[in-house]
């Protein structure tokens, strides 16, 4: 099994969200970056489990600048075999997808794993774009995958239930919660990651299809109206009459 895992970086979930340069740039001041949780906890760990049972190789790929290196090293410490960084700014989803597809095209991976979404852009779109650019089947938001031979059995949530799908390799999958359990890298893994291969390759020629115009913060709540526990029985009536929520 030759597996590719697409890893993106995301601000730590407790980061303060603020903007600079006339609200056109995310303020990175004091922000620490983590591996996007869906990519790390679910996509990468399940890829490693499949490799451990079926044999093979797990490569991680990121599209980004040199600041991506600690993120990629973390993925290597968790257990990926090697890594590739495509050296370009993450200007837009289709641009990122084109970079990943251009790299993967020449490599014949059996499975390309992505996360369900990045927690900063919340797009859920890069993996589907990669699949189309490579003309591969795609299963989105999957929470279970098993592989036997060249056939994978995958589960994903659909309206009112769970759909069980069968897909032949090669394909693209995006991982949602439930696919695996988070792994904490151990000291040996962290040491080994320092010497694992991390190649930097030049970006393919592509133009961003979208541009960011500006950021803003959601309007603040006008404040909380308190009801005493004794009057809790009035809550529903208030929700109906005042808030029109019922």
């Amino acid at each position: 099994m030759k597996i590719l895992v697409c890893i993106s970086k995301a601000p730590d979930t407790t980061s303060k969200i603020a903007f600079t340069d006339g609200n056109s740039k995310f303020d990175e001041n004091g922000v620490t970056y983590i591996v996007n949780p869906y990519d790390e906890w679910y996509a990468l760990v399940r890829a490693l489990e499949l490799k451990e049972t079926l044999g093979g190789n797990v490569t991680v790929v990121s599209v980004g600048g040199a600041d991506y290196e600690p993120i990629i090293r973390k993925a290597l410490a968790i257990g990926a075999d090697d890594a590739v960084r495509i050296d370009a700014a993450e200007s837009d989803s289709l641009f990122v997808a084109k970079q990943i597809a251009a790299y993967a095209k020449a490599q014949s991976f059996d499975i390309i794993f992505c996360g369900k979404e990045t927690i900063n852009f919340n797009g859920s779109i890069v993996p589907g774009m990669v699949a189309e650019l490579l003309d591969m089947p795609y299963v989105a938001l999957a929470h279970k995958i098993d592989v036997a031979g060249n056939t994978a059995t995958i589960e994903r949530e659909v309206t009112g239930g769970v759909e069980v799908l069968e897909v032949a390799t090669p394909f693209v999958i995006s991982a949602a919660k439930g696919m695996a359990e988070q792994r904490i890298p151990n000291m040996r893994g962290i040491m080994a990651a320092r010497t694992k291969p991390l190649a930097t390759i030049a970006a393919a020629d592509a133009q961003p299809s979208t541009t960011l115009k500006s950021y803003s913060l959601p309007p603040a709540k006008s404040g909380c109206k308190y009801i005493t526990p004794e009057n809790a029985g009035d809550l529903i009536k208030m929700l109906h009459e005042e808030a029109k929520a019922l």
Binding site: I17, F19, P208, S209, T210, T211, L212, K213, S214, Y215, S216, L217, P218
Partner: peptide, 8 residues
């Protein structure tokens, strides 16, 4: 946060 994004 909210982002305003232009499709080019």
């Amino acid at each position: 946060a909210i982002a305003e994004i232009t499709m080019n």
